[in-house]
Design a protein around this nucleic acid. Structure first.
Length: 295
DNA sequence: GTCCATGTTCTTTA
DNA sequence: CTAAAGAACATGGA
């Protein structure tokens, strides 16, 4: 569930509750979610202070005061929440970090400590130890909210893959997934099968703006909750109500009332409006000229 | 029982 | 090397 807007919302809700806190214990750990496998996470974390939490693509990156880093990836069904020790623990909780804020007396002092809980039924996510590196492996593409149209074009013009597949690839742009690629392509009026290198500079610039617009709106609505996603406070997102194409097969297009189509690309459901996102450029010009625009 | 699911990575095939 | 398709991972919901 977690694409950039969901992961950003988790970071935004996690940060005020965890920044500056000391990890005083790992009270629960399923070791096979840790990589590299066999890494001694308790030895690396207990006693350390969380200096900062940031997002890179879909990764939640923790920086410790000792200069080490690790990140948590939520996979498909992961949740990262801050709860009090007394609250019931969900099934498939794989890591519980007990934290205390500076000034607290600690567990021995009788003060309640908070818990950061990582729950992930399907276990596609995990905890990845980075050491002193902060996780910029050079393979990952630029942050979409900070990228320029030129950067995007440079990455798109060297591949003939369908634009949908190119945008799903984290090496092209970091943080997009199935929902926000479909929504961004709809907002830009681009058919998902369009070869990436056949988009001219104007259309790439339009796409670049559309991606940012969709992501900013999604963040403003605290992400999309389809089933599992919650922020660090356990709250659902609201953007799923504003999806224009994702999950709306056969429903009328918000612009032109044509039924939304679903095809499979790269093994993933792909949703689009055949009228507003025509495959050839001539049709695109016609659609624009007749005034069918997206919001 | 069937199909589908917000992600990533590996293998196979061309 | 490129890239497309498929499978794999594990679990649950409709």
């Amino acid at each position: 569930m977690p694409e950039l807007p969901e992961v950003q919302t988790v970071v935004d809700t996690l940060l005020p509750r965890v920044k500056g806190a000391r990890i005083v214990g790992l009270v629960h750990l399923r070791p096979d979610i840790v990589r590299p496998c066999g890494f001694d996470l308790p030895a690396a974390l207990v006693g350390r202070v969380v200096a900062d939490i940031t997002r890179r693509g879909k990764r939640i990156v923790f920086r410790l005061a000792d200069g080490n880093h690790f990140y948590i990836h939520l996979g498909m069904t992961g949740r990262l929440t801050v709860e009090s020790a007394g609250e019931a623990q969900r099934p498939h909780t794989h890591l519980v970090m007990e934290i205390e804020q500076p000034g607290a007396n600690g567990p021995a002092g009788g003060r309640p400590v908070a818990q950061i809980r990582f729950c992930d039924p399907r276990r596609f996510g995990g905890v990845f130890w980075l050491g002193s590196e902060c996780g910029n492996d050079g393979q990952m593409g630029p942050e979409p909210l900070a990228m320029t149209a030129g950067q995007l074009r440079q990455r798109l013009e060297r591949t003939t893959r369908p634009i949908k597949n190119a945008l799903m690839d984290q090496r092209t742009v970091a943080g997009l997934g199935n929902i926000y690629v479909d929504e961004s392509l709809f907002a830009a009026g681009i058919h998902p099968l369009t070869p990436a290198n056949r988009l001219d500079a104007d259309r790439v610039a339009h796409l670049c703006r559309s991606i940012k617009l969709v992501l900013r709106r999604a963040i403003r609505h605290r992400g999309s909750t389809l089933r599992d996603y919650r922020d660090a406070d356990g709250a659902e997102g609201g953007f799923q109500k504003l999806h224009r194409v994702y999950g709306r097969e056969d429903a009328p297009c918000a612009n032109c009332r044509s039924p939304i189509q679903r095809i499979v690309l790269g093994g993933r459901s792909t949703h689009f409006c055949p009228k507003c996102q025509p495959l050839n450029e001539k049709a695109a010009v016609t659609a624009r000229a007749t005034g069918r625009r997206q919001p």
